[in-house]
């Protein structure tokens, strides 16, 4: 009798323990699952960003280490540098020269891909090939093709009787060349994003337009493009964040990697790199950190403007749709 109750008691207790364990299991598991991300992100993402702010208010040298507190001195110094503003101009210019043609070309490619093609996968993969070429490799190929004196492009221009272009020496041509590298790598990728969005556009819209006698170009402009607005804005936002930080292509555009003799194609990220690690005036971590924070703020502002634009366009878009 007593043994029996003991066994029962043990069983009951075991269930109770099981319940408690189970409760803890349910409660704690989610936190356990998300914690690796948050812990690692705090260490490797959040901390560097915050510590950048700390470094930016000190005189700080790569070898000498932390020096005197200088308040906003580094920010004032960076903002007073002509090269900083040139690099800002260059980053925006390269960004615009790559984003605008890229989006237009990607839209057209997507529209063609959206037709009833034979062997769809082949064409889709075809436009995506450049995506697997590393930016460094892209830059090496294009910097060769865009050589000022002995490059392929100028050679071809010469054959059709045109003057050679100073792809490295001039400001705008150098931006065009670098933008071409970005476009080469990303146009096909964005075309696929647009293609997917196009396929989500209900086909009856087109049927209705056809009945109204709209031609193909008109359908594209008045149905396809407006329906793609959110995707368009998305692509623009991501290419803004990526484009304003461009480094690989301009860094590798010539063998010196300093952005040209008059900083023709020096970008902000290159400027940050040069302040911190680069050949001329390097090692100034305080300056580099201040410049990094300024770039961070610029990206946030541009991002917010984008977001506001998205909201406005999206709401006006849905209003007109309904």
């Amino acid at each position: 009798m007593s043994t029996l109750s003991l066994v029962e008691e043990r069983a009951v207790r075991r269930i109770a323990i099981g319940h408690t364990l189970n409760r803890w299991d349910v409660k704690l598991s989610p936190y356990l699952y998300v914690s690796p991300f948050f812990v690692l992100f705090a260490l490797t993402g959040l901390f560097p960003l915050l510590y950048t702010a700390y470094v930016s208010v000190f005189d700080w040298h790569i070898i000498g280490g932390q020096g005197d507190f200088v308040g906003l001195g580094n920010f004032e110094w960076v903002l007073a540098q002509e090269k900083f503003w040139i690099s800002l101009r260059n980053s925006f210019s390269i960004f615009l020269l790559s984003a605008v043609p890229q989006v237009i070309l990607a839209l057209i490619i997507a529209a063609v891909l959206d037709q009833n093609l034979r062997s769809k996968t082949f064409w889709r993969m075809g436009v995506l090939v450049p995506y697997v070429v590393a930016p460094v490799a892209v830059a090496l190929i294009f910097s060769n093709m865009f050589g000022d004196q002995y490059g392929l492009i100028n050679n071809l221009l010469g054959r059709i009787g045109l003057d050679p272009v100073g792809w490295h020496s001039q400001v705008v041509p150098s931006h065009l060349a670098i933008a071409t590298m970005v476009n080469f790598r990303w146009t096909g990728y964005n075309a696929l994003i647009f293609l997917a969005a196009m396929q989500a556009v209900p086909r009856d819209y087109y049927e209705a337009a056809m009945l109204d006698g709209a031609g193909r170009v008109r359908q594209f402009l008045s149905i396809t493009v407006p329906s793609l607005r959110p995707t368009l804005i998305f692509v623009i936002i991501t290419s803004t964040i990526g484009g304003l930080q461009i480094f690989d292509e301009p860094r590798m555009y010539d063998s010196a990697g300093t952005g040209g003799a008059s900083s023709q194609w020096l970008t902000i990220t290159m400027y940050i790199y040069n302040q911190g690690f680069g050949p001329a005036g390097g090692g100034q971590f305080g300056h580099a950190a201040a410049a990094a924070w300024i770039l961070f703020l610029i990206i946030i502002v541009v991002g917010l403007i984008n977001l506001a634009a998205t909201r406005t366009i999206a709401s006006s878009g849905s209003r007109s749709a309904s």
Binding site: G45, P48, T52, Q245, I272, Y273, I299
Partner: peptide
Amino acid sequence: AVPTQLGIVPLF
């Protein structure tokens, strides 16, 4: 949206 490569100085 945060460009973490801006943290290169502390990362270094």
